[in-house]
Amino acid sequence: MSDASGTDASRTDASGTLDEALERLHTTGPERNGWLTNHAPMAVEALVRNGQAPTVHRWLDHYAHKLEELPPPSRPVAADDWREALGDPVRITDWTRFFGRELAERPWREVLAAWWPRLLPGIAASATHPVIRTGHAVRTLLTSEGAPAGGGTTAPRLAELAHALGYWAARSKPLPPLAALAAAPTAAAALDAVPPVPVQEGGIRDRLPQLTAFPAWGAAPDPDTAKALLTELVTAATHRYATHGHGEPIMLVHAATAPNAVLRALPALPRELWAPSLAAAWTAAAAVTAAYTPPEPAAYPPTALTAQEITAEEVTAEEVFERAAAHGDDHTIKFTDTALDVGDPLALAAAIRSIELNPPLF
């Protein structure tokens, strides 16, 4: 997989498009209709990072009908009473303003390290979207740190981290207590062994309370092992979408994009947080899998693109992302971005599968 801290010139956005898009989006809230997530900040970051900056404002114009204004503030979150406000969605704007103040006063890595362990127990909140948004924001800041003149960390990029962390804090909600099932030898085997929730109906808020147990997997005695196992999990979940994504094409992308958000954040976190980050990422991937996995896998390979074609380099990773960008669906763009991080033929075929399964924006 690629390194989330990479700083090649093609990904630093000297055009300023990302900052423009984020400033445009920071007048809007993280949700609409009281629950559904605003995916635009994540999608535009993925578009810019993968060479599609010229398409960003057109994409936002098409997505604009899904945006709502920031919710009104309630009362400020203070450093000594944050526990009372944790998990209160009415306080979304209060939390965003709190993190804005924190990031104005301290280095962003310091703020992230302080709050990461406090937020990890609620990683599955809002269908894992807050941690995914945080992962995109952190990746941008890591990339910005090594940018040449004209790039670097900017106010909109720091503000995006405040919005992401604020959303996570406001929606934070731990999963029910979970028992450990028999240990699985690999991430792929662990995902296959996740028991589906008994009632496969309703939204994720109806399904997650039904969780009772997951296979034991991912014990990490040291940070390097934790990172390696987290990489394995992202790869396994991405590959699995090729054959299981039809169970719920939109929701099952999060089984891969949520742990990948955690993987992207690791370089910015103290190493002692890497093992608990792996444990939380496994919980998130397993929860989404349990909530939406289909009874049977689908035939592989996908009809539009075979793994053999990708292996023969008839279709490049850049071309796969171009297809996702042209398709326009926000989940498809983010999943394809994760598939490019994995980078192997099966991951790219899974990305094509997401393009086949999900409804296009355009």
Rank of each mutant, 00 (worst) to 15 (best):
E45S: 15
A291S: 14
T55E: 15
V199F: 10
A237Y: 04
A180P: 07
A279V: 00
A189R: 14
A187I: 09
W274R: 02
A285Q: 03
L178W: 11
L346G: 01
R109A: 12
D3F: 11
A280M: 05
Y300E: 14
L158A: 05
S2A: 14
L47E: 01
A307F: 07
A261L: 09
Q52V: 02
H129E: 12
E102A: 13
P267E: 08
A307M: 14
S10A: 15
A137W: 02
L348G: 01
A256G: 03
A43T: 11
A312F: 06
A219V: 13
A53R: 10
D206M: 11
G122E: 05
P345V: 07
A184V: 14
Q308H: 14
T231Y: 01
P174C: 11
R240E: 09
P295E: 09
A188Y: 09
A351E: 06
A261S: 13
P259L: 06
H244W: 12
L22C: 06
Y300A: 11
P359M: 08
A184Q: 13
P71V: 13
L22K: 01
A307W: 07
D344T: 13
T336H: 04
A213E: 15
P360Q: 08
K227R: 15
L165E: 09
S5W: 05
P295Q: 10
P54T: 10
L112V: 07
L263A: 08
W116D: 01
E314V: 03
P148A: 12
T338N: 10
P294K: 09
D61A: 15
G328R: 00
D206Y: 08
A275I: 10
A21E: 08
H65N: 13
S5C: 08
V90F: 10
R58A: 15
A187F: 08
T316E: 04
I250Q: 02
H62S: 14
D222R: 06
T289C: 09
P73H: 07
H39V: 08
Y63P: 02
Q308K: 14
W108Q: 06
N33S: 14
L340K: 02
A46T: 03
S2C: 11
R75C: 05
W59A: 06
P295F: 03
N33V: 11
G150T: 01
